[in-house]
Computed example of a mutant assay.
Amino acid sequence: MKKIICIMFLWFSHSVSAQEKPYVSIKIQNIKQAKGNMRVAFYKKGSAFPKEGSITYAKEAKVNQAGEMIFNFTDIPYGEYAIAVFQDKNQNQKIDKNLVGYPTEPFGFSKNFKPKFSEPEFSDCNVVISPTTNTFTIKLID
């Protein structure tokens, strides 16, 4: 009987934790060159988006082909986030910018927000990870 109770407890605990952290997929489009690494960063609501030191979750992978890449996450809890991506072509672990501060490497944001004169605000790029919506597409700007 104790074994059955333990098994039921473990199963219930696993199903509860699986509900707290859904499967999230980020499709990145408009990759022009198979060069460097692609970095995807999630910023939780209330963070200093899009500052490097405020990243809540991130993943990086080598760019093996032009076209598109897909990143999958299983460790991000439900909630409101902004997503920033960039292709680190020279692999220096930062997004390079020109003299006026505009990125010289391909980049993009959730909601495909295109900044005009300054960095975006969180509200320009916010998305909600929920039980029903967990796939997001970001087109790189270069």
Rank of each mutant, 00 (worst) to 15 (best):
N126T: 15
S13T: 07
V100T: 14
S123W: 13
I7E: 02
K3M: 02
L140S: 04
K51L: 12
A18L: 05
S25D: 01
K97H: 11
K2N: 02
G36Y: 02
A48D: 14
Q29T: 14
I129C: 11
M8V: 14
D88V: 10
W11K: 08
T137H: 03
I5Y: 01
P120F: 05
F42S: 08
I4Y: 01
P120C: 13
Y23K: 10
F49M: 06
I83T: 09
P22W: 02
S15P: 00
I95E: 00
K89Q: 14
A82S: 15
F73G: 07
S47C: 10
K97P: 01
V85I: 14
T135R: 11
F136K: 09
P22I: 04
C125M: 11
S13H: 00
I55Q: 05
A66C: 05
T104R: 09
L99Q: 12
K35M: 05
Y78I: 13
S110R: 13
A41W: 01
M8N: 12
V85Y: 00
A61N: 12
S13A: 14
Q19A: 10
I138W: 01
K62W: 00
K114A: 09
A48G: 09
T135N: 13
P103R: 12
K51R: 15
I28C: 04
N30T: 09
I4A: 04
I129D: 03
T132D: 12
P120M: 13
I141E: 08
C6H: 09
K111V: 12
I7H: 00
